[in-house]
Amino acid sequence: MSEPQPPTATVQGRAIAMLWHILARYRPAMLWRLARIAGPLVHRFSRREREVTETNLAEVYPDQGATERRRLARQSLTHSTATMLELGFAWMGEPQRVEGSILEIHGRELLDEARAEGRGVIVLAPHFGNWEVLNFWLSSHFPFTAMYEPPKIAELDPVIRQGRERMGASLVPTNPRGVAALLKALKRSEAVGILPDQEPDWGSGVFAPFYHRLAYTATLLPKLVARTDARVVTGVARRLPGRGFAIHFLAADERVYSTDETQSATGVNACVEDAIALDPAQYQWEYKRYRKVIEEQQGVPNHKTYRLY
């Protein structure tokens, strides 16, 4: 049984869900205008997000001037704010309106060709643009399975789950049972989604370069590829500010198919870099991507953490 939520968390969850329901009525153009108002406030008053974003940008773009990186940080937090405002639209907006907001599709042939060959497709979906719009499109057009971990605020779980599953997506837990479900879906020549840019628990990843610095990267992908002969593509929903979205599917770096886990993880990170290159401001730079490197250097990793595989 899940632990009871404190009253403040329950109230917070209900307030967030209500806000999503309200924002679901707005189109992306209006949500972008709201983000342009709220984004600079997030940059100014959310110290943690600002500092992590600026630190990450200094790591990956060391040759840029400080002024340029600060400008990029402000843009990035505006896009992250837009993503949060768009969640209600992606999860609860009328399906025809969400579909109508997707103005461009690039690289769909990568998915169609793989399925025509009887191969499953692994979609690497980094935290770029609006990944919930990508989930909406994928689950609208293909049999689609993705891992799902319930949010910390339990009140939001049914809202998020219903939003992600409403177009037919199958959500599976982040445990061995979920991995087995992904394997079965791939063997049925279906599509599955993986978040390639979240640090896994200790024991479920390897250190691989991400923008020339080591980052702890999950090793789920080579396990799935080795057992299914699936094709790997990178997928993102790039925001077209004030208009809608463009879906991009990119051919994966060939290293993702390596049986060597470090080589494969290096390829995964290269795929994320390729997606970011579409528009660096649309990546969620406020995530502490290099956290476990620092833990390792400080000698504090908890290697007893539950292994996913």
Rank of each mutant, 00 (worst) to 15 (best):
1 M>S: 05
1 M>T: 01
4 P>H: 09
4 P>K: 06
5 Q>N: 02
6 P>K: 06
8 T>A: 07
10 T>W: 09
10 T>F: 04
13 G>L: 11
18 M>D: 09
19 L>Y: 15
20 W>Q: 13
22 I>K: 14
25 R>C: 12
25 R>K: 09
27 R>W: 11
28 P>Q: 06
29 A>W: 14
30 M>W: 14
35 A>D: 01
37 I>E: 00
45 F>V: 11
46 S>E: 07
51 E>N: 08
56 N>M: 14
64 Q>D: 13
64 Q>S: 12
65 G>N: 11
66 A>Y: 07
69 R>G: 04
75 Q>T: 05
75 Q>N: 05
77 L>M: 06
77 L>R: 03
79 H>N: 10
81 T>W: 13
82 A>L: 14
83 T>E: 01
87 L>V: 08
88 G>V: 06
90 A>G: 02
92 M>R: 14
97 R>S: 09
110 L>W: 13
111 L>H: 07
117 E>H: 14
117 E>K: 15
119 R>G: 02
122 I>Q: 04
123 V>S: 01
123 V>P: 03
132 E>L: 07
139 S>C: 01
148 Y>Q: 01
149 E>S: 09
150 P>M: 02
151 P>Q: 02
156 L>I: 11
157 D>I: 10
161 R>T: 12
163 G>F: 13
166 R>S: 06
168 G>K: 10
170 S>Q: 11
175 N>Q: 00
177 R>Q: 00
178 G>N: 00
179 V>A: 00
183 L>A: 09
185 A>I: 00
188 R>L: 06
189 S>M: 08
193 G>W: 11
197 D>S: 07
201 D>S: 05
223 K>C: 02
228 T>E: 03
233 V>R: 04
241 P>R: 08
242 G>S: 13
243 R>Y: 13
247 I>L: 15
248 H>D: 04
249 F>Q: 08
250 L>E: 01
263 Q>E: 15
268 V>M: 12
270 A>M: 11
275 A>V: 06
280 P>V: 01
283 Y>G: 02
288 K>E: 06
290 Y>M: 05
293 V>W: 15
306 Y>V: 05
